[in-house]
Simulated scan of single mutants.
Amino acid sequence: MDFVTSALIASWVAICLLALVVSGLIRQVHQLSKGAVRPPRRVGIQPGAPAPGVAELVGDQRGAVLLFLSDGCRTCRDVLAAASDWASGRSFEGPVLLALYAGQVPEAAPGATLPAVGHRPDLFDSYDAIATPFVVAVGDGGLVLRSEPVGSRGELLELLDTLYRGQVRSAS
């Protein structure tokens, strides 16, 4: 066999392998276009749903803001401090703010004055709080108003100000 013949055979083998790869890619694109992949689901308990265990945590007197936090999470500590500032700076009777931990409650952070409950992984599951910090706002009737992860203290304050817009809070 001479050089030209072996080059032609190697070229045809390469073309066949490339055709197989392209046909596999086309099959995957076809499956994706048919909707084989589900759209991402919403995280957290649906607004309007009853808030599980909220009466046991804060009683039936008024609404609540549940902060799902993790020990060792810097953003969680920032959100906790912002919630403490917001709670201490308000001039109205607002919701009960409560910090929840799946494990042990960490040592008190400086300036954090919110009550905290530890060892409640069941609530993380019930509220579908898959990431921390996660905030669930519960209305006076025990129904979920908002349920979403927050990534900064600014996001938390914006959420609280949106929910309690009609009620004045002092700037701090």
Rank of each mutant, 00 (worst) to 15 (best):
Val4Asp: 09
Val168Arg: 08
Phe68Ala: 02
Leu114His: 07
Asp125Asn: 08
Val21Ala: 01
Ser147Thr: 00
Arg41Lys: 09
Ala116Pro: 11
Gly59Val: 01
Pro47Glu: 02
Cys73Thr: 10
Met1Thr: 14
Ala99Ser: 14
Arg77Phe: 15
Val79Asn: 07
Arg120Val: 05
Val58Ala: 00
Ser172Leu: 13
Val138Ser: 10
Leu143Phe: 06
Thr5Gly: 04
Val4Cys: 13
Ala171Asp: 12
Gln61His: 13
Val65Asn: 13
Lys34Arg: 13
Ala49Tyr: 11
Leu25Trp: 05
Leu57His: 04
Val144Gln: 01
Leu69Met: 14
Gln31Asn: 15
Ser91Trp: 09
Gln167Asp: 04
Ala10Cys: 13
Val135Thr: 14
Ala171Gly: 06
Ala36Asn: 05
Gly166Leu: 01
Arg120Glu: 03
Arg146Ser: 12
Leu156Ile: 12
Leu80Phe: 10
Ala112Met: 15
Arg169His: 05
Ala112Thr: 15
Phe134Arg: 00
Ile26Arg: 10
Val168Pro: 05
Leu123Tyr: 03
Val58Glu: 01
Thr5Ile: 10
Ala108Asp: 12
Ile9Pro: 10
Asp122Pro: 00
Met1Glu: 06
Leu18Gly: 10
Gly118Glu: 08
Ile45Glu: 02
Glu158Asn: 11
Leu66Tyr: 02
Ser33Lys: 11
Ser70Leu: 12
Phe92Arg: 04
Arg38Met: 08
Leu100Thr: 02
Val54Pro: 05
Pro106Trp: 13
Met1Phe: 09
Gly35Leu: 03
Gly72Val: 14
Pro110Leu: 10
Leu17Cys: 14
Arg27His: 11
Val58Met: 02
Pro40Thr: 04
Ser126Cys: 06
Ile130Asp: 09
Val58Ser: 00
Ser170Asp: 13
Val117Phe: 02
Ala55Phe: 05
Pro50Ile: 03
Glu56Asn: 03
Tyr127Thr: 00
Asp140Phe: 10
Ser88Leu: 08
Asp60Ser: 10
Val29Ser: 07
Val135Phe: 11
Pro40Asn: 01
Gly63His: 00
Cys76Phe: 03
Ser88Val: 11
Ala51Met: 03
Glu158Leu: 13
Pro133Phe: 09
Gly24Phe: 06
Val13Gly: 12
